[in-house]
Nucleic acid binder design. Sequence first.
DNA 1: CATTTATCAGACAACGTTGTCATTGACGCG
DNA 2: CGCGTCAATGACAACGTTGTCTGATAAATG
Lengths: 347, 347
Amino acid sequence: MSPATILDVAGSAGVSIKTVSRVVNGEARVADSTREKVLQAIKALGYQRNMFARGLRADKSRVLGLLYDNPKGDYPTDVLLGALTHCRESGYHLQVEVLRGRDLPAQAIKFLSETRLDGVMLTPPVCDNMEVLAVLADYDIPYVRVSPNKPRPGECYIAIDDRQAGEHLANCLLELGHRRIGFIRGIPGHAASRLRYEGYRGALARHGLAYDPDLVLPGKFDFASGFGGAAQLMALPDPPTAIFACNDEMAAGVLSWAHEQGMPVPGTLSVCGFDGGTISRVVWPLLTTCRQPIRELGKAAIRRLIEVSISGKREGTPLILPFELVTGHSTGKCNCFPDTAGQTAGT
Amino acid sequence: MSPATILDVAGSAGVSIKTVSRVVNGEARVADSTREKVLQAIKALGYQRNMFARGLRADKSRVLGLLYDNPKGDYPTDVLLGALTHCRESGYHLQVEVLRGRDLPAQAIKFLSETRLDGVMLTPPVCDNMEVLAVLADYDIPYVRVSPNKPRPGECYIAIDDRQAGEHLANCLLELGHRRIGFIRGIPGHAASRLRYEGYRGALARHGLAYDPDLVLPGKFDFASGFGGAAQLMALPDPPTAIFACNDEMAAGVLSWAHEQGMPVPGTLSVCGFDGGTISRVVWPLLTTCRQPIRELGKAAIRRLIEVSISGKREGTPLILPFELVTGHSTGKCNCFPDTAGQTAGT
DNA sequence: CATTTATCAGACAACGTTGTCATTGACGCG
DNA sequence: CGCGTCAATGACAACGTTGTCTGATAAATG
């Protein structure tokens, strides 16, 4: 059985196809009695409208795209989940595309020419690939970036205030008495990594502490960077009493190194991460971290795309979502001044 | 500027639209010189074919669906990644849909009526929802299930041999000398959980060991199940010396409980998980686990869907992919016979 | 009662592509 | 030369929907 079309419904309900179209699209000028007849016919025939024909005529697919190139960890999962949630609420659908390997712009061209999307959202790091953005602009597809590195003036992007978050987290450590705090950065060019680092430096400055470049290491957002970074930092002549890793996975690496050394956490070394995803909740001890509202970021991006798709206006103000500090058990008071600590313990 | 159509290309190249269509679709009967002319015109005009029109005429969208309802952890991410990889190689695209909350069949109906997919892949647990499957059958959409609970005869599904994997893993523990092995199950109705459990019992039986129901606990595949399960198991009068958790996240819970008690792992308690994803690599000590080829599962499912979509034949043989045992540092020799252990240590 | 206005419904074209069938011309063979 | 065969190309309809325009009927107004 071939599926029922608008024509079958029209015949069955004794009206014209246009009237059926009006009912299906919820247009105003239809008498209640007619609408009822049509709805019944639709139900009886199991009619479902054909998206191809609809799209061909209206040039709107109601399908959005999610474009990413870093399929690791909770981030893509949660962005996707948030995006899907909002899509479902709005009657939109989501097509996912991964850009990996060589010649990202060519991949973007291929996927854009094979589909018809009403808009695309991009996450780091691909959201900072200028060539890919140029392709999108060329195809005249609206897009929204999440946590872009260098937002353009007037661009409507979605992010959290990573700088402030970094500063807050560093502050937590400072208030626990830590004075030498190691910092492990994420991959270069990643906006979040840079901003969290700036926040870290800002916190130090506000506490009147000198900045020691030996305490800052590069990283790749992976476990090995944390593990190796911890080894390197703790081998310093004057090692830190706390380590701030730029994400949870690196923090997990720091924790594992400490466990392997038999070094108590947070007794001898405090550790904090960033993201607040699954990893922070399955390691021991529970990580002190900063929870990003990743799902909300995804939701907001989709909401924004739909707005643009309907209104056509691409300008707008950036949307900065709130983060949340999560206090785990991986951070504690600094024991770095044995005399002071001894006094307190003695009395 | 409105985008160029096949008509513009035809005009520019001095041929008919049908010829352009032939070139675009790589059909055979076109003279090389003509093909060249058309290709140049396409390039010059920046022509890209309109998927709506194509779909309307050919009734093929070249878009597949991924349907899931358990958006936790690496599983969905990796399935998605594998699926996308194969999609890209094959010129297909992937639309993702999450079914969550109440009335899953209704959600399935909604999403199927709003899109036009050539096929759908499903992962657990939604792949075992008979109502949803009925909806898919009703819409006459080919589907492939990954790790289904009760495969139907002749159904072509994708899975690993969970029973055998469970048996292997239990065997590892038995060969290390463990005789009392705790087992924490996953959510009921989940095929993998049941099969791994059967494998565990099989291994016990093969070693001539009695089955002790006290050693088997229910679980929900989450951290808390592992944490609580460990507490409960180790409070037994005759506690286990090893715990086999049905996935990595629960194993991480077991580890954390042990750390909190100051119980050495694997010194006093050996732990193994299942999945071999990120979690197994970021906890301390590294988990002994069974790595599922999740990406390959996703790839295989898509490959299969494309076959079905092209050939129209829905029958086929199930595809069982190989798993891989990963030996971490969370398992070690059993110290449960102090006399023997003492003797060895003494000499 | 005549006229305007509002409301509802239908006829028809158009969207850009592919499938079906027809046409053209070149070539080989008896 | 006449015929059949085959490769290459084109004309045209059809896919199912929505936008535009027009027509019909009922209600409101002078």
